[in-house]
């Protein structure tokens, strides 16, 4: 479904080159929940953004369902992006739009008729269980509710892939659990491939099938979740598995 081959990304900050991604190769299967875990600054956010080309890789290729996407023009990318939903740590909802307006937003970018949009939004409100908030503004919602709306918005155009960038990092453990169970349900019922970026091992443990550990722009370990938990090889993975806040 998603294949990254030798992806590099270099940022320039005042002539200083920063390697955000260093020869990353990954293959993510259809219907899989794939976790990418790493500390902040490890390059995981850049990595997930190369999948929908929000960040263009400096070198390397990306294939979605067998199609090379790195060579596409910005105009062609628009169509690819409509097949990939994305949710974020800070939800990124439009403050000027109601819940309805936010979920309808990606659909209004196309020529979909209004009546059809209304039907689709109602389906999604049902899915995220927020029918009674249809005409509320995001400011009046809790964090968990905002993320639900963001999920509905990401699913509106019936994507094949859902990218989650630290989607639960701003939420408390209880809300995190409910969002994760919603993601799991989406994966099971709709068969959507999910790529999930996080720094929390519990998140990976809760819903991921496979996981890659990233550090300094490199994939240091890649395995099934069970295997990783039992046979962690790299020191970074071990540290992520046993986080400690003890200062010595």
């Amino acid at each position: 479904m998603i294949r990254l081959e030798g992806v590099h990304k270099v940022f320039y900050k005042k002539d200083k080159a920063i390697k955000a991604l260093d020869n990353v190769s990954l293959e993510i299967a259809t219907g899989e929940i794939f976790g990418i875990i790493g500390y902040s600054g490890s390059g995981k956010s850049t990595l997930v953004r190369t999948i929908n080309l929000l960040e263009r890789p400096t070198a390397g290729d990306i294939y979605l369902a067998g199609q090379a996407v790195t060579t596409l023009s910005d105009k062609q990318l628009i169509h690819i992006r409509r097949r990939i939903g994305m949710i974020f740590q800070h939800f990124n909802l439009l403050s000027s739009q109601t819940v309805y307006g936010n979920i309808a937003f990606p659909l209004t970018l196309t020529d979909m008729p209004k009546a059809q949009i209304e039907i689709r939004v109602d389906e999604l409100l049902e899915l995220i269980d927020l029918k009674d908030k249809k005409y509320d503004f995001p400011a009046s919602l809790s964090g968990g509710q905002k993320q639900r709306v963001a999920i509905a918005r990401a699913l509106a155009s019936k994507p094949e892939i859902l990218l989650c960038d630290e989607a639960t990092s701003a939420l408390d453990p209880q809300t995190t659990r409910s969002i994760l169970s919603l993601l799991k349900r989406i994966n099971l019922e709709l068969g959507i491939t999910i790529v999930l970026i996080t720094h929390q091992m519990e998140v990976v443990r809760a819903i991921c099938h496979r996981v890659a550990v990233i550090s300094q722009g490199k994939i240091v370990e890649k395995n099934s979740v069970e295997h990783l938990f039992n046979h962690a090889k790299s020191p970074i993975t071990q540290e992520l598995l046993n986080p400690s806040l003890i200062i010595d």
Partner: peptide, 18 residues
């Protein structure tokens, strides 16, 4: 405007004019 909102719109396939 928080940059994330623009990024979210890009991720949904919005053109610059949109």
């Amino acid at each position: 405007i928080p940059y994330g909102i623009i990024e979210a719109a890009r991720s949904m396939g919005a053109s610059t004019v949109q």
